[in-house]
C-alpha cells in the first residue's frame, strides 16, 4: 500500500504569530517554522500501519518555501520512505484553491492508495484542503476521523461532528483527514536521522505539475485589508484570603454578568 501523508510547515504556535500588515501574508520570519503537529499525527497513523504491514510505502509531501525541507527531513527521520516538496515563488501566498490544485497534481503524479492529512492546520485553519484534494482527484474523502482503521482496499473510522459522531467507510483510493484525538507522533531516533539523509527527496515546481498559478479564469481568495488588534491588558489580580469569592461575585454583579 502506498500512503501519502500531507504535512504542512507552520509558524510555531508557542510564539506570537504575525501577519505582514502590507501583504496580509503570514510573516514567516517572525517564528520558527515547524511541522504542524496534526500532520505529524497523520504520519504516526501511517507509521503505525506500516509497523504491522511490511508492504507499505510512505511518502511525505508538502507545499511551501525553502524551510520546508527541514520539516520533510524530520518526517523521513521518523520513518517515511521518501519526500516530495513543491516549491515555487509563483505559489507564495497561494490561496486554498491553488494549494489544493498543487497538492492534487503532486499526489496524482506520485501515485497513491491512501492520502492522510490533518483535519485543520494551525495557521490557515481552513480545514478544507483534504476535501478539495479529494474532489480534484475524484476519490472519496473521510474527514475529521478520531479513529482510523486501514485495511486492504478500504478505510473506516469514526468521524467526530459537532452534535455526535458518524461511522464512515470508503474504498481505496481515498483521502482521510484525522483529528488530534489520535496519538502524538513518535520521536525520530539517531538511526532514523542518519537514514533520512539518504532517502529520496524530490523538489518540484508548479510548472513540473502543469499548474499555472496566474490562471485568471479561476476565482481566487484575495486579502483586501489587514489590521492588528490591540493586545489585552491585565486587570485586577487578588490573592485569596478567604474573601476572594465574595469580591469576585461583587465584580460580576457590578458588570451585570450575573
Amino acid at each position: 500500500m502506498k500512503i501519502i501523508v500531507l504535512v504542512k510547515e507552520v509558524p510555531d504556535t508557542y510564539g506570537d504569530r504575525k501577519l505582514d500588515l502590507e501583504t496580509g501574508l503570514a510573516d514567516r520570519a517572525a517564528n520558527d517554522a515547524v511541522p504542524d503537529e496534526i500532520g505529524e499525527r497523520a504520519l504516526e497513523v501511517a507509521l503505525t500501519y506500516a509497523d504491522k504491514n511490511a508492504d507499505t510505502e510512505i511518502v511525505v509531501m508538502s507545499v511551501g518555501p525553502n524551510t520546508v525541507p527541514g520539516t520533510l527531513r524530520k518526517a523521513l527521520a521518523m520513518g517515511a520512505a521518501s519526500a516530495v516538496h513543491v516549491m515555487d515563488d509563483a505559489l507564495m501566498g497561494a490561496d486554498l484553491g491553488l494549494t489544493g490544485e498543487v497538492l492534487a497534481a503532486a499526489i496524482r503524479r506520485t501515485g497513491f492508495d491512501l492520502v492522510l492529512a490533518g483535519n485543520l492546520s494551525t495557521d490557515g485553519s481552513g480545514g478544507v484542503i483534504p476535501s478539495i484534494v479529494a474532489e480534484l482527484l475524484g476519490v472519496p474523502a473521510a474527514t475529521n476521523l478520531s479513529s482510523v482503521e486501514i485495511s486492504e482496499g478500504a478505510v473506516a473510522g469514526v468521524r467526530a461532528v459537532e452534535n455526535g459522531s458518524v461511522n464512515v467507510r470508503a474504498d481505496l483510493p481515498a483521502v482521510v483527514s484525522i483529528t488530534e484525538a489520535l496519538p502524538d507522533a513518535r520521536f525520530p531516533n539517531f538511526k532514523g536521522i542518519m537514514a533520512a539523509k539518504k532517502k529520496p527527496f524530490e523538489t518540484l515546481t508548479a510548472n513540473d505539475l502543469g499548474i499555472n498559478a496566474e490562471d485568471e479564469s479561476k476565482g481566487r481568495s484575495i486579502v483586501v485589508a489587514v489590521s492588528e488588534r490591540p493586545a489585552r491588558a491585565a486587570g485586577v489580580k487578588i490573592i485569596d484570603e478567604g474573601d476572594a469569592a465574595s469580591q469576585l461575585a461583587d465584580f460580576l454583579v457590578q458588570n451585570r454578568l450575573v
Partner: peptide, 24 residues
C-alpha cells in the same frame, strides 16, 4: 456554516466550480 460537514461541502463545491473560498 463553518461546521465540519459545512466545510467539506464548501471545499468540494469551491474546487468543482473554481470559486474563491473564504473560511471561518
Amino acid at each position: 456554516s463553518n461546521s465540519i460537514e459545512g466545510r467539506d461541502v464548501a471545499a468540494r463545491f469551491a474546487a468543482r466550480t473554481h470559486s474563491a473560498l473564504a473560511v471561518d
